[in-house]
């Protein structure tokens, strides 16, 4: 896959929770058409980075540029309206809304004319959701919630899709299904994906490039293949941890 021009550019970002610094000068860039994986131990700051892109919490230093626009200080909802979508950590399905309503929430307001078409696409990707169209989000199983969360993000017709640990707590078969879906989207529609994973092996195999984060800083980066082969990465994230 040829790397297009830079879509998301994160420069020297620092983020705090109160007085505690969670990100300590992060530089990451994602080019158009890529799948980029971010791996790191629990508490490294991966989810914080995903949320910082949306300005919640807000970066205290550094800049975040999306498609040439500085979005560092934009309100969260306006960032979302620039067609960045996220399936966040914990999935955050609206528990008292049906599957359909959850998908409707994903579709941005000016996008309603594509709604039927887009819903069909999501259902082809995740046929399980179609069967549960009127079920409440809170009563879905974990795997179904994950599918719904990704589906909801796709409804926005995103230029960039952020996925925070889509495989967390899921059975290997469902993980494979989800990773296949991501690959499929990237290949057929050229969707750019920025992916956080603890399942480093699967993520790096899927990714064009990868970053390794430790304690709020990026310590290593390279192509997915290189990182997979790197002895340090293997020692820290892969050996004994292969799913």
């Amino acid at each position: 896959m040829t790397a297009g021009k830079s879509l998301l550019d994160i420069r020297g970002v620092e983020t705090y929770y109160g007085n505690i610094r969670a990100l300590n000068g992060v530089d990451v860039s994602v080019n158009e058409g890529e799948i980029v994986a971010l791996i790191g131990a629990n508490g490294a700051g991966k989810s914080t980075l995903m949320m910082t892109i949306f300005g919640t919490p807000r970066a205290r230093r550094g800049t975040i540029t999306f498609a040439g626009t500085d979005i560092t200080d934009l309100p969260t909802h306006e960032i979302a309206r620039m067609r960045i979508a996220q399936s966040p950590e914990g999935r955050r399905i609206f528990p008292r809304m049906t599957v359909m309503e959850n998908l409707q929430m994903g579709a941005s307001l000016d996008n309603l004319k594509f709604f039927d078409e887009d819903v069909e696409k999501v259902f082809t990707l995740f046929p399980r959701l179609k069967e549960r169209i009127a079920q409440r989000g809170g009563t879905l199983s974990g795997g179904e919630q994950q599918m719904l969360s990704i589906g909801r993000a796709l409804m926005a017709r995103p230029k960039l899709l952020l996925l925070d640990e889509p495989s967390l707590g899921l059975a290997p078969l469902i993980v494979k299904q989800i990773f296949d879906a991501i690959r499929e989207l990237n290949r057929t529609q050229g969707l750019t994906v920025f992916l956080v994973e603890q399942n480093a092996f699967g993520a790096l195999k899927l990714a064009t490039r990868g970053y390794v984060m430790v304690n709020g800083v990026v310590t290593m980066s390279g192509t997915g293949k290189d990182l997979l082969a790197d002895p340090e990465v293997r020692a820290a994230y892969l050996e004994g941890g292969r799913h």
Partner: peptide, 19 residues
């Protein structure tokens, strides 16, 4: 729908573009 979304998870609603 936006109101109910804010009710259930305000942060997620914002992530989906709800003001």
């Amino acid at each position: 729908r936006a109101q109910r979304a804010c009710e259930q998870d305000r942060k997620m609603a914002a992530l989906l573009g709800v003001d």
